[in-house]
Every structure is written in C-alpha cells, then in structure tokens.
C-alpha cells in the first residue's frame, strides 16, 4: 500500500557528471518498498514541471529508516531535484508498482543493468543476497557507454565477486554491449536454464536480453519505463504494448515477464 509523504533529505551526492544519489528519510517506504518498485517524486513546488518523476528504489535501510534513489539529470524535473539541499523535504508518493518476482526455487540469479538500470538492481541484489542466494550464484553485469558513467560498481562488489563491467567504447572493463557479455556469461558449463535473468536498462538493450533469454529458455524479468503521470493506475497514460494488450507500467509493471512484451511496438 503506497502513501504520499514529505521525506527529509539526509544526503545528496553527485556520483557522476550528471548523476546523483539522494538519501531520504521514511520509516514507511524504507520498510515497505520491494525490489523493483519505484516512487513518484515531486521535483517542483510550482507548476513547471507539473508532473512527478518516477524513480526506482535504489537501496533501503529499514533500521535507519532511510532509502536511496539514484538518478540522472535528463530534463527540467531531475535538474530541479538535483538542486535540493540536505535538510529540505520532498513530496514522495510510494512505494509503487509491482517489483521483481523473486523465484526462490531458482538457484542462479543474473542481474543485467544498462546505464541507469543499476538503480533498482542494487536493491534487488542486496535482497537476493540477504534472503536466498549464495554470493557465488549471483551474477551481475553492468554495461554503460563509457567509464565515467559506471555507477554503483563498488556497492555491487560488496555483495558478490561475480561482477562484470563492460563499456561500449572499451574505456573500462570488457568492450562491447552488455548483451554480448551476457552471452559469454551464459556458458552452459556454468549456468543452466534454471537461472533467472533480471534486467533493467534502455529498451533496445532489454530487447536484446529478452531475445537471448528466449533462445536459451531462461526466465527473464524486465523493468520497463514509460512517460507517467499519476503513477497509481488511474490515468492510463503509461501503457506499453504486451501480449495481453496495453498494460500500465505503473501498476501492472514496472517489472514484466520479458515474454509478454511486444518489443516491435
């Protein structure tokens, strides 16, 4: 059950040229948010920009009653958000949506992040690590365009040794797309079809990952994005095309079974 509340900013750090990590105080959200869920953030007190911005929950700490969001400045809303100072309050609606469906029977989890896709996957990795998984059975693949855009690498490495970083331009880690790195990782000698892939990132990357998962007959869950208004399922503005017809990213998703997405639309 989501709530709307004012959350105090405990910390706000620039972590890359256009990327920030904000730590917010909320007893409720820190203890109720599930991996893959998001919050809808009001970035302006004024009417421009008017709408909230949906941001995936990056990390939670229920003991300290805090949660983190990782975001990139992509427009007016996130630009305004980045100007907020420690101690200020922000109006937050959440936690929202359906997160990852964590299948406890699966022995191996492969998390694939493209660019900002690391945001919800860090919380997922932490959750998997604390509940069901041996660190050796969690594989994390992070792909970005270039070295300076790699986020949360250190945090992932505290959870497992199986962290593979790649850059499109080869400036750090392996050179190439994260989907190609996934193909190498899916060596049948190490990973069989009992694994689950959890992916978040740009749509072309998710499409490539979904195709690989389909060919290898591996379950795959993808976290989708769409322009959103209400975030609570009332406006029907954020739909995407699926095999079940139009589905709302905000409350049918944002996490979907990759097989259900109509990737061509």
């Amino acid at each position: 059950m989501p709530i709307q509340e004012k959350c105090r900013i405990l910390d706000h750090q620039k972590v890359a040229p256009f990327h920030f990590k904000i730590t917010l105080v909320s007893k409720y959200i820190s203890s109720h948010a599930e991996p893959g869920q998001f919050v809808n953030v009001r970035c302006s007190q004024d009417y421009d920009p008017l709408l909230r911005r949906p941001l995936g929950v990056h990390n939670v700490n229920p003991e300290e009653e805090i949660f983190e969001l990782l975001y990139e400045i992509v427009g007016k809303g996130t630009e305004l958000l980045s100007k907020h100072q420690v101690g200020q309050e922000i109006d937050i609606l959440g936690p929202l949506g359906n997160g990852f469906d964590i299948n406890k029977d699966k022995k191996v989890a492969i998390l694939v992040a493209g660019g900002m896709g690391v945001a919800p996957l860090l919380y997922l990795a932490k959750f998997l690590r604390s509940t069901i998984h041996d660190p050796r059975s969690i594989h994390i693949l992070i792909g970005t365009k270039t070295k300076e855009l790699i986020l949360a690498e250190k945090e992932f490495k505290t959870l497992t040794d199986n962290v593979i970083v790649s850059t499109d331009d080869g400036s750090y880690g392996k050179k190439g797309f994260v989907s190609d790195v996934l193909l190498e990782t899916l060596d049948p000698r190490t990973i069989d079809a009992s694994a689950t892939i959890y992916a978040c990132g740009p749509k072309p990357m998710l499409k490539a990952i979904a195709e690989i998962a389909f060919q290898k007959k591996i379950d795959c869950q993808v976290s989708m994005e769409a322009r959103m208004a209400c975030g609570i399922g009332t406006c029907l503005g954020c739909v995407i095309n699926t095999t079940k017809g139009y589905q709302k990213v905000c409350d049918d998703g944002p996490v979907f079974d990759a097989k259900e997405i109509v990737w061509t639309s």
Binding site: Y47, D48, L50, R227, A229, C235, L236, G237, C238, V239
Partner: peptide
C-alpha cells in the same frame, strides 16, 4: 485506447491521448 506514448508534459500542463 490509443497507441502509446499517451502523455507528454508541456509548460504548466500536459497533453494526453488516452
């Protein structure tokens, strides 16, 4: 309903085509 994208933000407002 209509083909997505269905909403876009504009100055102090929004367009919808649900």
């Amino acid at each position: 309903g209509n083909k997505p994208p269905r909403i876009c933000e504009t100055a102090s407002g929004m367009l919808n085509s649900i």
